[in-house]
Each structure stands twice: as C-alpha cells, then as structure tokens.
C-alpha cells in the first residue's frame, strides 16, 4: 500500500466520527427547516446533558480497560438522595447526591481493583442492586425535588444557554483535563495499554483504577442530579438504559474498548451529540421515532466494527 493511502486510511479511522457528525448535521440542515434553529439547538443541548454527564465518567473507566454498567442506577440513587434532601438548601442536596455517587464509585472500584472481580459482571449485578435500593427509597413512585434545585434546573444563561448543559460540559472538560494533564490520567492510559507492564514499571494500578471508578460514580450521580433538577421531580425512569447508551456514545467517540485510548473531549462529546442529534433530527423531520433505535443500533455496530479494525491494524 502507498504511504498516502495508509495516511488517508489512518485519518479516516481516527477522525471518521467527526466527519460523520458534520455530515449528519449538514444533511439535517438541508432536509429539515426546523433543525438549524436556536430553539432546536437548546433542545439538543438539554437532551444531551444527562448522557453527557454520565458518559464523561464512563470514558475514564473505559480508558483503563474496565467498564461500569451501574452508572444508570447510580444516577437514580443520586436522584433519590435529591428527593430525601428536598427540604435542605439546593447546595446541600447536590453535595449529598454527589457524595452518594462517590461512595458507590469507590465501592465499584474496590471490588474491581482490589478484589479482582470481573467488572462487566460485577457492575451488571450492582446495576440491579442499586436500582433496587433507589426503588425502595422512592417506593417505585415519582417524587419531588427541592424547589431551589428545580429552579436551578430551569436556569438559562443569557436566556438561552441551559445551565444544566454547561454543568455537564464542565464536568466533561474537567475530566478531559485530568485525563490529559495529570499523573493520574497518564496512569489510566498506561493501565489501559498494558496492565501488567504498568504494574511492573511501578504504576499504582489499583489506586488509579479506584480513582477512575470514583470519578465515574460522581459523574453518574451528577447526571441523575441534573435530571432531577431539570424535571423538578424524580421519575423511576431516571438512568434507565443509560449505561448502554453511554457505552455506545463513548465508543462511537473513539474510546477503545481495548483500553488505553480515548478522550472525553472531543471524543465522548461527539459521540453523545451524534446519538442525540440523530434522534432529534429524525424528530424534526417527522420521521417515526421508532426508527431511532435502528439507526442507533446500526451506528454502534459500525463504531465497534471500526474499533475492531483499528485495533487489528495497530496490533499487526
């Protein structure tokens, strides 16, 4: 193969998702009058907020080569804490909810990193258990969030930009900063590359993984808290199926399931936007909402196929 072809192929593999995102935006802009409007973009921003917050933390866990399927349930648990603290000031409520997420994250990290359990199965079990805990607290019914928090959830900067979206974006950017600029981030990437080598060379593998799970727990809790604030209430659907959507978004954004590679920004942001924009774009075009899962499924399939090809290309 010629050098230039290899180069073109590499660029295609690395930046394909961004090109795809641009192409999709362009197509929707052309075929739908209501797509490229400020109000629709605000809609997109709000719709992507909750997935964005959760996927940001999941990115870190995936980078270390592990997975956390309990994030949706963690979001729900955090939201129930918002309900339990509804009478307290909003700040306290938020802190308590994030604290719960941190505790859950630390527990997940402990059983994976220190007890050596398989992260896929263990967090699958915990996904059910945490959801059960949340349902016990809410008795399976809709509960109200505190008014202060509900007001915050509706706040729009300059009357346009939703505060909740900015919050999610800020979380994502902070995580990206940790991933790229700190010692911890370098350790995560090293562990994801080759856990054995990392251990041999003196990387504190277990502590680093614990930290990734802790941040993932906080990020999932933030997602639940944002949703509770936005809706002003806590529904039993909070975080339902979010783990699978988040895995899809993170992988579409180029983070490898084989570990050691990926980014929260722009990768995961692009992945989330891609999923949300397709949903939104199909909606504004008046396409049956039932088509969305198809498109999303096909997209995930395509993304992981690319990931597999990329991984094979690198290992050869």
């Amino acid at each position: 193969m010629h050098e230039s072809m290899i180069q073109a192929k590499r660029i295609g593999l690395e930046y394909g998702f961004y090109l795809l995102l641009l192409a999709i935006v362009a197509v929707f802009t052309v075929i739908s009058n209501s797509f490229l409007t400020v109000s629709n973009f605000v809609q997109i921003a709000i719709a992507s907020t909750f997935l964005l917050a959760a996927a940001a933390g999941l990115t870190l866990v995936l980078v270390t080569g592990e997975i956390d399927l309990s994030i949706g349930s963690t979001a729900y648990v955090a939201a129930t804490i918002v309900y339990l603290t509804a009478d307290a000031p909003a700040g306290l409520s938020i802190a308590a909810a994030l604290g719960a997420g941190l505790a859950i994250g630390l527990f997940n990290g402990w059983i994976v990193a220190y007890l050596g359990m398989n992260s896929l199965l263990a967090t699958l079990g915990l996904m059910i258990a945490y959801r059960g805990v949340a349902l016990v607290i809410t008795e399976g019914t809709v509960k109200q969030a505190g008014e202060g928090l509900a007001d915050l959830g509706q706040l729009k900067l300059f009357g346009v930009i939703p505060l909740i979206f900015l919050t999610a974006l800020a979380i994502l950017l902070v995580f990206q900063w940790i991933l790229r600029k700190t010692r911890l981030g370098t350790y995560w990437l090293a562990i994801g590359n080759n856990e054995d080598s990392a251990r041999k060379i003196g990387v504190p593998v277990r502590r680093a993984k614990l930290a990734a799970y802790a941040l993932c727990g906080i990020s999932a809790a933030a997602s639940g808290t944002l949703l509770a604030g936005y809706l002003g209430e806590i529904t039993t659907f909070t975080g339902r199926g979010m783990e699978f959507q988040a895995v899809a978004a993170v992988v579409i954004g180029g983070t490898s399931l084989f570990g050691g590679r990926g980014s929260a920004f722009p990768g995961t942001l692009a992945g989330v936007l891609l999923l949300i924009i397709i949903n939104n774009g199909l909606g504004t075009r008046g396409v049956s909402p039932f088509v969305y899962p198809f498109v999303a499924g096909a997209l995930i399939f395509f993304a992981i196929y690319l990931d597999a090809i990329k991984n094979r290309a690198r290992s050869s």
Binding site: F244, V247, F290, Y292, P293, G297, A298, I300, I304, A308
Partner: peptide, 23 residues
C-alpha cells in the same frame, strides 16, 4: 468471523432487536 467483541456486538443487536419490535 469479523472478530468483534461479543459484549458490544450483542449490546448493539439488543438495541436493534428492541427497536425492530417497537417499529
């Protein structure tokens, strides 16, 4: 044959199958 990760492959067929049933 395509050597993709079972977990994610079946995760996406899970989404597709559900979507198919709804559609």
């Amino acid at each position: 044959y395509l050597r993709m990760i079972p977990f994610i492959v079946t995760l996406s067929t899970m989404v597709v199958a559900e979507g198919f049933a709804i559609w």
